[in-house]
Amino acid sequence: MPIVLNEWVTSEEIANRIDRLRMQYANNPLVKRIDYRIDADWTGDPAVFIEVILAGKETPVEEVLQLAQNIRGDLLRLVRTDEIGLHSFLNFKPAS
């Protein structure tokens, strides 16, 4: 089923917000890249799913936990997709 966004939310607006996060972590040695997609959450509402691809295959878990905490803080302070009616979900994936 196609995901329908609110008419006043553009994909450009979402991309701009994700770019703030990407810029923040551009030089972070733990982060290879940050991807995102718009998809439905468990209730069927549209949401932003952010996927952080880790630079290493075996990054120490303590470092990933700290990174996750930092990124969650930045989602609240920098990205705030909630302001445009979309929640952001964060996932981590080791480099393949």
Binding site: D41, W42, V61, L65, A68, R72, F92, K93, P94
Partner: peptide
């Protein structure tokens, strides 16, 4: 976040659930 992760953990078997992802959820 945890509610969405719980749905993925309990119902979505399409792909392997990443242990590192789970560790961040529990933390």
């Amino acid at each position: 976040d945890l509610q969405q992760a719980r749905h993925k953990a309990d119902y979505d078997v399409a792909e392997t659930f990443q242990a590192i992802d789970a560790a961040t959820n529990v933390s």
